[in-house]
């Protein structure tokens, strides 16, 4: 019986609980390290590790904090405005006609907050995280150690993109959740009057809210790919972040110059506010589908460009 143990001993290189790896091995000719094979499930560890890297960074938490603060500010402002009993004017500073409904139904704070953050705050946060993803690791030198680990360039890039997309969802959810908490505590909640004038139940309204959150998060995947691509171009994390955010601002400006309307349908933010069409009965899908198609096009083009660049570049930093 102990014979079986002794023969099994040397084979159980890693699992043997009796042998701590730090202990000096007193055999004369030690076996070469057992060749290890990669496992698909173990590859997920890299994605998990990426998520930790993104979400444990103080900067990420600060960005999410700012995003959570927007609904609080909007909610309080509306609350103060409507104290006298009159509703907020419909001149719509906060996007498509959601603002004046907040005082009647707290759920609308979520829609108004998404409409308020989608043009800049939300994509800016994505630009920072996506721009930093590869370039930040290059500038601190950690990229070379990931590559000799070996993470594999394609695998690392995929893990990076997946973690940026996860951040897109998380950032959107932070806005929505903060808005729901603030909206439900400051304002009455009930049946939802849609933009088209019909009224639907609160549960129907909440489902539409979830769909909107999903659409808003999806609106960011094009920018995420663009940021990732820019991030593979340079060894400066700050530079890549600034370039991505700068590009976002430029594109948003072009998107609002009427003389450049020929260009606008190809700009990634052009159909962003189409999510408001979910709040109609029946839902108008054209803008929403155009937005999704454009996002996937950007993701495909800049994702491929990022891959082509990252898998061939010299890593000298």
């Amino acid at each position: 019986m102990s014979r079986a143990e002794t023969t099994a001993g040397p084979g159980l290189h890693d699992g043997d609980p009796g042998h701590r790896p730090g202990e000096p091995v007193r055999e004369r000719a030690p076996a070469p390290p057992a060749s290890r094979t990669p496992r698909a499930a173990w590859s997920l560890g890299l994605f998990g590790s990426e998520l930790l890297i993104v979400f444990r960074r103080a900067r990420t938490l600060a960005l999410l904090g700012v995003l959570a603060g927007v609904p609080v500010l909007v909610g309080i402002a509306v609350r103060i405005e409507t104290r006298g009993g009159h509703s907020v004017g419909g001149d719509g500073g906060g996007g498509p006609a959601f603002l004046e409904q907040i005082s009647n139904n707290g759920l609308f704070l979520a829609f108004a907050s998404l409409a308020a953050t989608l043009p800049f705050f939300l994509p800016m946060a994505i630009g920072v995280v996506a721009g930093d993803s590869v370039a930040g690791e290059a500038s601190t030198g950690t990229l070379r150690y990931l590559l000799v680990a070996p993470a594999g360039r394609t695998r690392l890039l995929l893990a990076k993109y997946a973690s940026v997309l996860t951040f897109c969802v998380a950032a959107t959810l932070v806005v929505v959740l903060s808005a729901v908490v603030v909206g439900f505590s400051l304002f009455p909640v009930g049946d939802v009057t849609l933009l088209s004038g019909n009224t639907v139940s609160l549960s129907d309204g909440i489902l539409r809210g979830l769909l909107i959150a999903l659409l808003v998060a999806s609106s960011l995947i094009g920018l995420a790919a663009l940021g990732l691509f820019i991030s593979t171009l340079t060894d400066s994390g700050i530079g890549a972040m600034a370039a991505t955010v700068g590009l976002l601002i430029t594109v948003q400006i072009i998107n609002n110059i009427p003389q450049l309307h020929a260009l606008q349908p190809y700009l990634f933010p052009h159909y962003w506010l189409s999510f408001a069409d979910v709040m109609r009965a029946p839902v108008i899908w054209t803008g929403i589908l155009k937005n999704l198609a454009l996002q996937f096009l950007y993701a495909a083009v800049f994702g491929s460009a990022a891959w082509a660049r990252f898998t061939t570049r010299d890593v000298t930093a």
Binding site: T37, S49, P150, R155
Partner: peptide, 10 residues
């Protein structure tokens, strides 16, 4: 973190 980057690391 570095160990997680190695797909052959248990």
């Amino acid at each position: 973190r570095y160990d997680a980057a190695d797909p052959t690391a248990d």
